[in-house]
Amino acid sequence: MADLSVKHLLGIKNLTEQDLQTIFETADQFKAVINRSIKKVPSLRDITIANVFFENSTRTRLSFELAEKRLSADVINFSSASSSVKKGETLLDTVKNILSMKVDMVVMRHSSPGAPHFLAKHIDANIVNAGDGTHEHPTQALLDTYSIREKHGEVGGKKVVIIGDISHSRVALSNIFALQKLGAEVMICGPVTLLPKYISDLGVKVELDVRKALEWCDVANILRIQLERQKTKNFPSLREYSLYYGVNKKMLNALDKEITIMHPGPINRGIEITSDVADSEHSIILDQVENGVAIRMAVLFLLAQKR
């Protein structure tokens, strides 16, 4: 089986296109596994994985834990409501303590951009970034692009728009990197206060009008409005946001084509997306969730080979 070019999954930025294809092909096999009656394989039987979550997470943590268990790894969970421990036990101390219990891999979510990169410099275990602040969320981008590939046959040449709060989104950044590596065209759309000033230098199109963005695209990835991740208010109200940037069925009906609707979850129904869109036949939101387990199995399996 093909090999990854990296020892850790810190971000999509550091991966090659070949890495992405290798992960997808491995995920194909694991997707077949989890749809069998016996959903478990012994691949990581000797491996202990710590899920270290310094930020709240439900689905990502569940998805990782399930992926680990399907691979027969031993799993321990650590969660702390607060990261940013400046005085007292540092991140490095916390993780070193966990590693002293002979842990092989660390899956970490943290509110600081670069926290997994920092760990990778100082410890021996393989690190999987499960989201680092407003930086990257590589497994989400992998499962998103994998889901596009599944629906459309390939990612290359597709037009994908990411709608919402781009400035505070690790999902957006990782998706931009992944889509570009795979040859897709990327557009971002949202209120200007939620778009990073230099984003167009990354080679993405910028559109301020949601209707125009939807007309342009083959796939629309609608982001959750993360009110909790904004220290200053970047738009006046949820009401105004949902009126002018929310995606509803009327907008989709006005298009002369069918587009695929995605959302990384959890959905704020009626804010960035209406229920009739989220639950429509064009939505692959629940496929994304299913694919998440297969993708995470693939990532853990491939990184374990690098030990």
């Binding site: 930025k13 951009p113 670069g114 602040g133 407003t134 930086h135 990257e136 230099y198 984003i199």
Partner: peptide, 14 residues
């Protein structure tokens, strides 16, 4: 604040 800070998802000092 620039392309690098954008790629790092890190808030910039403009």
């Amino acid at each position: 604040e620039g392309v690098a800070s954008t790629m790092l998802g890190t808030r910039g000092l403009p």
